[in-house]
């Protein structure tokens, strides 16, 4: 497998994740964008792991997956309370905290 393709794919996924977080107004989709970024990192970790023939990179991926699961749990909880407060999951609704 070419490492080149893996890094390009990973870079593309990461950029897609960043753009999702920055541009989408829907908070659930922002969460998806964050997951995308995490998985892009996972992909490159796996790719480099197989390149160097070492397992530690792949072990690390499991940790990241655990963290990602916890993060999406917390993120969903925040989204639920946001929805309760503003009756919407649009991030533009939550713009009270200013000045």
């Amino acid at each position: 497998m070419e490492i080149d393709i893996v890094t390009k794919l990973s870079c593309f996924m990461f950029c897609a994740g960043v753009l999702t977080v920055l541009l989408r107004r829907d908070t659930i989709l922002m969460l998806v964008g964050i997951e995308l970024m995490l998985n892009a990192v996972n992909l490159s970790l796996v790719g480099f792991s197989s390149l160097h023939g070492e397992l530690s990179g792949q072990i690390f991926v499991f940790f990241i997956m655990v963290v990602a699961a916890a993060e999406s749990g917390v993120g969903l909880a925040i989204i639920i309370s946001l929805f309760r407060a503003f009756r919407s999951v649009d991030r533009e609704a939550a713009s009270e905290l200013k000045w």
């Binding site: 960043v18 991030r91 200013k98 000045w99």
Partner: peptide, 14 residues
């Protein structure tokens, strides 16, 4: 600069 809009804050962040 403290607009209260998440989008702007994320922008600063990145």
């Amino acid at each position: 600069l403290h607009s209260g809009r998440l989008k702007i804050y994320l922008f600063y962040f990145f």
